[in-house]
Amino acid sequence: MTKVKRSFLPHPFLTAILIVVWCLLSGGISLGTVVFGAILGILIPQATAAYWPDAPRAVGLFKVTVYVLIVVWDIIVANVVVAWVVLTKRNRDMKSVWVAIPLELRTPEAIAILAGTITLTPGTVTADMSDEGHCLLIHALDADSAEAVRDDIKNRYERRLKEIFE
């Protein structure tokens, strides 16, 4: 039974997202859009199943919601901070530093989300990853010390992602 389910609906969550996206694209929820969205939602995951060999594990909905809310708040604050720094500080007063962050996360999804979060939040951009995947290279626009940026990211985001994914 599970094998049949696995080959018919390899990624149920992806199917649900595709139905919602199709309804948004065609501008309204009607029988036609839901049925056609369901057809697409069943065919596309089957056609691309070879590229997604592992089913993602279930994650806690509450923790994900808390994380998303924290990140959205940080994005808004970050934009005001970066705009202020860009407009008021002279170039030679900005102390931009490289920060290397040793990773405790091992799952590729968690590392990708952490990298995206870092890019969207205060004055930091994820620039690169070490060749074995144990380290992220981050560029900070205006930071007092590399250690402070590293500890902030490790405490604020990586700890929560570790609770969600591992």
Partner: peptide, 14 residues
């Protein structure tokens, strides 16, 4: 960029 603490090199420079 600085040397990565754990690995050999950064992926882009490898």
């Amino acid at each position: 960029p600085p040397e990565p603490p754990k690995d050999q090199n950064w992926a882009t420079l490898n």
